[in-house]
Each structure stands twice: as structure tokens, then as C-alpha cells.
Nucleic acid binder design. Structure first.
Lengths: 215, 215
DNA sequence: TATTGTGAAAGGGTTCACAGCG
DNA sequence: CGCTGTGAACCCTTTCACAATA
């Protein structure tokens, strides 16, 4: 258990297990087997057991895993036993969609501030917060102790925004701008590239005879 | 060249190479080496050459690759030498953000129709198209010959929407709803799960001492 | 000489298969 | 008996290293 290296794939699957466990809990199931979890996500039961065994021995042989207990353990592993302070840069349609999505708040991610560089947007309300001038980004991150930054700006401004975030102490960035950010290695970066997803689909439709491995 | 199996990783990198080649072309470079492309994306030059060699021998030894030629070949491979008919279900903030993003149109993805089930949205204009009742989804997909479906609805409606799409002949779906869709295997599915990305970041921040492999 | 194209080796993620145990 | 936990096997992806060649 708790080896030195954990793959990004394992982390993503843990997120899925976490959701499935919520479903099982809502359905009143007290225990689940690795097979129950596996079939919900299209994996093998061995995969599920391997993933979990990296963090401990949570199951009972012959019985499976206690739903509430495993759920709590995964929450702990993923760092969901607390709330995270998030800021968003870019108050356009995409930014607004992210801001309004209740799922983030429900899972412990609080939008403490929203920034934009458009004077027509600055000062506007977005739920409980007011859109601020992006010039104040660094100061607000420091003052509020913001830990995660979300970038939903055009590509042109994204690197500068990211640099400001990092300078202010942010160590985790979720980037929706269509470019490859260059960041120091201590900063965790995840990119959401919607055009690349569409292009993957275009490839699949164009090359139906080709086997595409791993989805 | 052109082996039977192509990995999803290779396809994604091709999308990146394609962008980088546009940058090189704009910068007036006539040729690039695998090393030039590799450093832009943080890969090795061998990786770039392996990826390209799966589709042919496009380079010249000692010289590299012709920028416009390689760009054209990758466009062809990805199926970007044509336009694709796309429909969008869910005309909320996220759907609107996707609809308005020029990058899709610029790369050949045309939004032919937008659907919603909210009477207050049906009939509203979204750029060149009008939001239609989702009840018409199947008919419109068939009539317009729509090939790619984008789902930006709440989780509750997503499976039903996907089923309708598949029934109407769609074979590629990009899903933003936070659930695991169940689809026949001939349909290509890509999911964008923003909450899972945030949870990965939460894991990274919570487990700083752990090595997380592959980003 | 610089750089490609590619077999071979290495790395690492997934599945198998079974011992261990409730 | 059923299901977990895990070493070993397998398989896929990446990197190495070098012959080929413009």
C-alpha cells in the first residue's frame, strides 16, 4: 500500500469510484464488491482492487467494501474532506458556465473571486461575488489564500494570467485556453481542450477501419 | 507505416502538432525537425517521429519535415480536410459558450442546430441558428445529416439525448454531462469532466509527496 | 552533417490467477 | 464459498540508439 508513484489514471478512476459510491449509498447498498464498481465504469474488478490497494486494504474478503467507509477513504485520498478556494479568470460565457455550475460548490470548491479585463464586465455581479479587474488577481490570491486557479480567457492572455497566479502562490491550475502553458514543475496543470476532443472524434469517424486503443 | 492500431495518445498529439505547425507556418519557417515539434509540447523527438511514422514517411533525412506539407498531411489524417456537421443539445451557459467559440467553426466544425427542452429558450436565436425543441432532435439529425453530437445538458437528460442521437445515426459524441454514458461500441465517445479535473488537482495538492505519473 | 525512420529495450499500466481469509 | 489483495504475466507506450540518407 501507499507506494511512491500513483498514476493520473488511478486518480481519475478514484473520482469515478467516488461518484459510484454516492450512487450506491443513495440506493441503500451497505457494501460493494470490486466487480460492482468495475462494471459501472467499464473496467475490470482487478483494476479497481489494484487502485484501492495502492492506498490501503479497505475491503473484507468474501464481503467487499463498506460503502460509507470506502467513500470516506476516497474523499480523504482525493483531498475532498475540506473546502478549496478557487478563483476564475475570464467572465465570458464559459467562465460564467463554470461559475454557475453547482457541482463544484457541492464538492467543496468555492469560487472566491472572478476576474476579467473587460471594463464592461468588471463590477458586474456573478452570484455572490463581483467581477474584479484582472490587475488585482495577484493581490486577491494572496489576500484570500486562493489555492486553485481556473483560466477561461482567450489564448492570448492565458500565459500572463498563469504567471501571475504562480507568482501569487497558486500551485494548481485548470486551463481552458487553447494553448500549452509553460509553468514551473511544482505547479499542477490540467488542460481541457475542447477542440482537441472534437478532432479526436473527427479522426475516429475518418478512420473507421483503424483500431483506436484506450479511450 | 499505417499499422492497424493507433493510440488515442497519438491522435491527441497529432492535434498538437497541427497547431504547432500553424505557428511555425505563421512564423515563416519552411521546415521543422521532430525536435522542434517535440520541445513545443514537452515530448521527445523520437515520440514525434514514431507518431508520424505510423502514417507514412513525411520527412527528409538531414532536413526535417516541410511545414506546409506536414500540416496538410496531418489535416488529412485527422479528417480536417472537410467540414463536419455538429449539433448541440443544451442551450445553457455552457452550451452557449461552446456555440460561440469561433475555434470550432475555424477548424471545420459547423453547428447546424441547437436544442433545449426549456420553452423559454426554444425559439431564441443563437447566432445563425434558432434553438429548437429537443423533441425534434432525431428528425433534424437525419434531415441535416448531422455527424457529431455535443451534449451539454444536466446529467438527468444526457443518456436519453445520447440514445436519440445514436438512433438517428450519430457515431461520435462529445459529452459534457457528469455521468458515464452507455453507448453501442461503434459510437465514439469523448467525455469532458470538469469536476474530475478539479479533483485531480485537489489530489495533487493534498499529496505533494507522491509522484504522479504522466500528465 | 543533420535528421529521419525504426527495430530493440525499457518503462509502466492492466489483467491474470490464485493464495489468503472472512 | 465469495471476494480481496497481490505477484507475475502480459500488453501497450515511450525511449534509446543507430543504420540510412538527403
Amino acid at each position: 500500500m501507499r507506494s511512491e508513484k500513483i498514476s493520473e489514471y488511478t486518480v481519475r478512476r478514484l473520482s469515478h469510484y467516488f461518484r459510484f459510491l454516492a450512487d450506491f449509498e443513495a440506493a441503500g447498498k451497505a457494501t460493494v464488491s470490486s466487480g460492482n464498481l468495475a462494471e459501472k465504469g467499464g473496467w475490470t474488478s482487478a483494476q479497481v482492487r489494484k487502485d484501492l490497494s495502492l492506498f490501503g486494504s479497505f475491503g473484507k474478503r468474501g464481503l467487499g467494501y463498506s460503502v460509507p467507509e470506502l467513500r470516506a477513504r476516497i474523499a480523504e485520498i482525493l483531498g475532498l474532506g475540506r473546502r478549496w478556494k478557487v478563483c476564475l479568470v475570464g467572465a465570458g460565457k464559459l467562465g460564467s458556465a463554470l461559475f454557475r455550475y453547482e457541482g463544484f460548490r457541492n464538492q467543496g470548491f468555492d469560487f472566491m473571486a472572478v476576474f476579467d479585463n473587460d471594463p464592461r464586465k468588471i463590477g458586474r455581479r456573478r452570484g455572490a461575488v463581483t467581477v474584479e479587474d484582472v490587475a488585482r488577481l495577484g493581490d486577491v490570491v494572496v489576500a484570500e489564500g486562493i489555492e486553485i486557479g481556473i483560466i477561461a480567457t482567450p489564448a492570448e492572455s492565458a500565459q500572463k494570467v498563469a504567471d501571475t497566479m504562480v507568482e501569487a502562490g497558486i500551485e494548481a491550475i485548470l486551463n481552458f485556453a487553447p494553448l500549452n502553458l509553460v509553468l514551473p514543475s511544482h505547479v499542477s496543470l490540467h488542460n481541457v481542450r475542447m477542440l482537441i476532443e472534437l478532432e479526436s472524434l473527427s479522426f475516429a469517424l475518418t478512420n473507421k477501419e483503424v483500431d483506436i486503443t484506450r479511450s
